[in-house]
Write a protein that binds this DNA or RNA. Structure first.
Lengths: 163, 163
DNA sequence: CAAAATTAGATTGTGCGCAATATGATTTTG
DNA sequence: CAAAATCATATTGCGCACAATCTAATTTTG
């Protein structure tokens, strides 16, 4: 699927084949940082970081999840989530409590402040949408492509989608 | 550009409008993590991390850059690059030396080991390309869209590209 | 029911990412 | 040319991300 004409050249690899600009990894890497930077000034007034905001979004989607369920949705493990959730609790957006029926589990629930933040998110989404300078259709198409990519990478898929 | 019918509803925001799956931010966030995880087993044998590998790529593109030039290319500041470059130097991939003509600058140059790694990268690119299960055309189109997005976010552009 | 295996979270250590600050070198200005 | 401003990099502190490890609770097995 990838042209091997140049890539097999180990002594003199043409700049084009390894050029950073054509590399997906760098594009995703840069876009992730750019999004992070774009969100920062919008979230700072609320004392939220970008990952914390994303975690809140999963709770708006469905409240009362366990740490494990949140981690599965976000693709994060407890080493990342535990301290992040403690900070969200410290800031008053969520509460954490052991499940009475299974003390191994910790249930994460939104506070009033956490639910109220959902309404502020509307303005944030509009601001980001404007900053991208892209139409909603364009953004949704890009989002769909990225989801396909992430899904395949995480499941170790090897099938080709070439038209 | 973005449909406001539902978004203006602050008392009862439809799940669809804020749904995580439709959000670009989460898609980019997840794809970045997925790529990181996909590269990890390929880079571990070389003792390289994903950001270190990306930094090496910029040096294959053009060797002998200053820290500032690398930071501009990568979108990283010295707080991130300084320790990363020290680790790359410790691992033997690069050398760092003050510029004799302007002692404020540090020139970063590849070692033989750093240049040799460029050849190993060919196999890594092929493995990642296969893992995505996407054609080269698909990946290049996605890459181009992401570059447009990142560029607009970083320049604070507000123009609309809606067709 | 008791021992073993499994499960859910938390903790620790290393590295990335950024803001704020510090240090030292160069350039600009008076 | 000396003081001030600027510039390049390094350092510090905080938060995210993950692997490895630890603890405690539940479930499984004999």
């Amino acid at each position: 699927m990838i042209d091997k004409r140049d890539e097999a050249e180990t002594d003199d690899i043409p700049a084009g084949m390894l050029a950073l600009d054509r590399q997906l990894c760098f594009a995703v890497y840069s876009a992730a940082h750019a999004l992070n930077r774009a969100y920062k000034p919008l979230l700072d007034p609320y004392g939220l970081t970008y990952p914390q905001y994303i975690a809140l979004m999963t709770l708006w989607e469905e409240d009362g999840r366990t740490v494990k369920a949140l981690g599965a949705r976000l693709g994060l493990d407890s080493g990342t989530l535990s301290p992040l959730l403690k900070r969200l609790e410290g800031a008053g957006y969520i509460r954490r409590a052991r499940d009475r029926n299974d003390e191994r589990q910790v249930l994460v629930t939104l506070t009033d402040k956490g639910r109220a933040m959902k309404h502020e998110a509307v303005a944030i989404r509009l601001a980001i949408g404007k900053a991208t300078g892209c139409s909603l259709d364009t953004l949704q198409a890009l989002t769909a492509d990225l989801q396909t990519l992430a899904g395949r990478l995480d499941t170790g898929a090897t099938q080709d989608d070439a038209a």
